[in-house]
Write a protein that binds this DNA or RNA. Structure first.
Lengths: 161, 161
DNA sequence: CTAATTTCTAAACCTAACTTTAGGTCAAGG
DNA sequence: CCTTGACCTAAAGTTAGGTTTAGAAATTAG
């Protein structure tokens, strides 16, 4: 059994070991490397070798993705980690705090939008310029290129319901 | 000026009028129709004609998108509206309440994940199976086909940081 | 009536985040 | 040594949510 392959000596982990440890697909790990989320060196045969600390790094990536952070956002967060040495628990705590802040902001945005929606539920309008949602141009999440701007129905023309 | 074109008589709104009223691109409205979010009839020349109530419908779509609801989710919500007659304010209030509930749940999920993260900030682990985030297989949002499952690093092997 | 707008369809293109495929190389067990 | 199984690269495919393009037909303004 190729069990403790990753425990062999100190030669770095092959990509498959990282995949087993994290539950990520090998292709996903290669993709993350291409996106600069992790770095690998190559062995004599040209195969990728990773450090143990990369398991932790990938775990962070996976967690951040649960919160719908984009690859770019995650890369920015990870740039807070030290370059030369392996990150210490303190490093991780630091980056986690940053993460938590970004997260809190995201939740706050969502709650603000929800509260605006509450106003609309009260009046049942959902199409009048009065509705705060029409004047709030933030999106909870900014992926893709959805509608550019928001305008309401003209109030002078009464709808026919 | 093609100003009150939409006020002409009672012949239905052409797609451009709907676009003006909502701020959506004409192409987006066609796309939404193709996805079953709105329905149009055709005039003699084969052009789409919409009802005034569709402005409201599209407005709802735009708002739901602010909360990152997918087209499918929005379609489900809109299915709560009456089929034959135009929706009344009460109909809209009803659907808005449903919307609000879905939204609250989404926020709750996010907060739960955040609280789990807080535990991790405390210990700085971010890779141990103890961490609640590894055992929580829900994603805040379920779009695309990201990582399938989450596993932690083996705790018996001490990392080399 | 004529010219300028709109609208129409179908198909191609776009981004994000990956996966799949194809064809070949490397490494490890027997 | 030979056969798996793991790995490699490059390119194409996938889904969501649209946009862009192209060429043609309908509508509207003057």
């Amino acid at each position: 059994m190729p069990e403790n392959r990753s425990l062999r000596k100190k030669a770095g982990l092959p990509i498959g070991a990282l995949a087993e440890r994290t539950g990520l697909a090998v292709s996903a790990i290669r993709y993350y490397e291409s996106q600069g989320l992790i770095a690998a060196w190559r062995n004599a045969g040209g195969q990728r070798r990773f450090e143990r600390a990369d398991i932790r790094r990938l775990s962070f990536v996976m967690i951040a993705q649960k919160f719908d952070f984009s690859i770019a956002e995650i890369r920015d967060l990870l740039n807070g980690l030290p370059n030369g040495r392996a990150p210490t628990p303190a490093d991780w705590r630091q980056i986690s705090r940053q993460f938590r802040q970004a997260l809190d902001q995201r939740i706050a945005t969502l709650e603000k939008l929800r509260d605006n929606l509450d106003g609309c539920i009260g009046c049942g309008c959902l199409s009048l310029p009065k509705c705060a949602l029409y004047n709030d141009h933030d999106r909870a999440r900014n992926k893709g290129q959805g509608p550019r701007y928001l305008l309401g129905d003209s109030p002078e023309v009464s709808d026919n319901y």
